[in-house]
Write a protein that binds this DNA or RNA. Structure first.
Lengths: 391, 391
DNA sequence: CGCAGTCATGACAGCGCAGTCAGACGGACG
DNA sequence: CGTCCGTCTGACTGCGCTGTCATGACTGCG
């Protein structure tokens, strides 16, 4: 059927010219009004709005994008998981994007997807986006953590053949290519604070239940833990690697329970911490009397599990907003300096899963440290009586 | 600057005609190849692909959408929360959409947003989408549950002035307008199964900790609970309404603990159940010995909290896929019958938070039921020894 | 009063694709 | 041996908007 025939009926979607005709102006003026350009008289503006309302006019975004070369859309690549962290980041990004006048396209990459992040980016570019957010990417080039070394180079850096700006959330900017910007939750500092909290309580050392080392987020936490131990000259126990799930935390907990000399564990997220605590309990170890556990994320239930979980809170929202600000700046004024995001504050939430180590167990190794720098309440209360405000 | 100037350099994005020239064919043929149309010889197809590869050609989606009138994009309206349910649904929808060859646009509506769902839909229509998914909407017209009546009519039905098909997930199809299709997780049946499980264990009645009644999902669960009690002629205790959060579950738990006669509670989600259990424990009540608790969702940690939570699992993934199948059908063949989705199977996960009621407390009311139909292990072990497979 | 500068509007072209149609070619068929 | 049909390809056009430029109307000022 020839193109013009379809709109013989009156039931067709109205276009700009229809509005223009009704308002008695040119189509271009309608465009001006809807783009909020200056140099349109109040009178004309009113007439156009009225006409548009009467017709139920909505601008055709495809045509707009085609003509202007801008889609006003930001693409997000995220791992397809319901994990609290990534989900929270996505929400923050959506909100920030909308505030900045951008719509969102979302592509999930399941771990082990063909093409992975690069493929997802490619599909976004095809869809047409003005900028790309890569949220909590994993390094697709490497396997697990061997024994100790983990935070290596950027294995699977995207050699993005793209001109659109890229924002990397929770991984080095280099991951997103040479001109990418990044914003991080400061996971390393947070992990460090978590570890120091345990050391401050008097624990000789702290075990680490790491996240999957393909995740940069997991590496950062490992690195923070390692740095905290190194700064105090403490021995570094072998790392156990989980997969973020409570189930893997449980498995790790059985292993740790049988090791015998464990008094403090820093888990790379709350889910694993919860599984870990359960395994310890099943093995007859009490938390925090026998073993202290710190989690990571402060998921909503962590204040209510038994015992209430000491954890660190990630500033997802501010990271998303800050990151998007950078991205939008890169889109709209590519020349200006990125002005890197300031590190968000570290927020350690001390609850009932951490306490000083059991007394009978004296430090075995040579260098006996005086836990002099111990700060905060050395004897953390084992449980919070009141729930925190439900923010 | 006049339009043509910008592409004086060689660094411009290649267009279809560039590929065509290089391959020695017409632009139209390039279009044919990239759309997988028939009637293109293998030889030409190969040449086009080679040329495209050489130039790094990517189709311009805006132009494609403009010319064809289809965007191959589905819009999703979702409440901006990191709640497990909505997040899982979103992931399922993305996956299903991608499999069907559609990209996704996402808009969050925070509760209390100006315009709410209707505004979000409007913005999606402006962005240009071929279909819309409204995921777990809330009824913006009503307040909380008064005393008992909750599952009323569809208050805030979208009077969508749209021709694009709408899929409503977790609410009546009517919510999305006259021609909307819907798919549900079968929450009512699940809630019923949860309640029946408790009755089967011998509890005289079951209290309900409801979700916010503006959520259709919460209403369905309330309705299922109510139906289960009604079917057995049991008394219906007053409903407590929470807000999905563990904190609200904690508050409700304190209230319930002071009531004195509570032996079984069905909570509308796992988070609230966890807060509830903690409050009961703080009040000196043991779960499940004194009070049994059933949750809803089967969030990943629920198998690992203390005690492990008996709960019902929602088939998010199959619902998302099934729903999207309907939506895509409505987009691509609007005439065909919707063939409503079959109700997914009910999956009750019995763990350690439920047990028969304490013996000293004989049923007070007249009709004493024999707990004959009690199925499964009447004395569920308080803990699972093994973690479930980490699926 | 004439001219520059500002404001307000319209004419026109073109963004990069897909739809339509016309045509070229080759084999099957009567 | 002409006709018909199925296969393959290209020319042309238009999707609905925005960028550019031209054009008036009006202002202020020398």
């Amino acid at each position: 059927m020839p193109r013009g025939e379809a709109r013989s009926e009156s039931s067709t979607v109205p276009r700009g010219v229809d509005v223009a005709r009704l308002a008695g102006v040119s189509q271009k003026t309608v465009s001006r009004v809807f783009n909020g350009e200056q140099y349109v008289s109040a009178e004309v503006r009113r007439r156009v709005h009225e006409a548009a309302e009467a017709l139920g006019y909505r601008m055709n975004n495809a045509a707009r994008a085609l003509a202007s070369g801008r889609t006003r859309t930001i693409g997000v690549v995220t791992l397809g998981t319901a994990l609290y962290g990534p989900a929270s980041l996505l929400i923050g990004v959506e909100r920030a994007a909308r505030d900045a006048g951008y719509a969102l396209r979302v592509v999930n990459t399941l771990e082990g997807d063909p093409g992975g992040v690069a493929g997802a980016v490619e599909s976004l570019l095809e869809q047409g986006v003005d900028g790309i957010v890569v949220s909590e990417p994993i390094d697709e080039g490497t396997g697990g953590v061997g024994g100790a070394e983990g935070a290596g180079g950027v294995g699977g850096a995207l050699s993005l053949s793209t001109d659109v700006p890229v924002l990397v959330l929770g991984a080095p900017a280099a991951f997103g290519g040479p001109r990418a910007v990044s914003a991080g939750v400061g996971a390393e500092a947070l992990a460090r604070a978590a570890t120091e909290h345990l050391l401050d309580l008097g624990h000789v050392t702290v075990h680490h239940l790491a996240g999957p080392q393909r995740w940069f987020a997991a590496r950062d936490r490992l690195e923070g833990w390692r740095a905290a131990l190194a700064a105090r000259g403490r021995g570094r126990p072998p790392v156990i690697e989980g997969d973020w799930s409570a189930a893997s935390g449980y498995t790790a907990g059985r292993e740790l329970a049988s090791a015998g000399d464990v008094t403090a564990v820093f888990a790379a997220n709350d889910d694993m911490a919860i599984g870990l605590i359960r395994a310890l309990a099943d093995a007859g170890l009490r938390v925090p009397e026998d073993v202290s556990v710190v989690g990571f994320d402060d998921i909503p239930v962590s204040a209510y599990v038994t015992p209430p979980l000491t954890t660190v809170r990630q500033p997802f929202d501010s990271v998303a907003h800050e990151g998007l600000r950078l991205l939008v700046q890169a889109i709209e004024k590519p020349d200006a300096d990125p002005a890197p995001a300031s590190d968000p504050p570290v927020e350690l939430v001390v609850r009932g899963s951490t306490a000083p180590p059991p007394v009978r167990k004296a430090p075995a190794r040579g260098r006996r440290q005086t836990p002099s720098r111990a700060r905060g309440p050395a004897h953390a209360p084992p449980a919070e009586g009141k729930p925190p405000a439900s923010d």
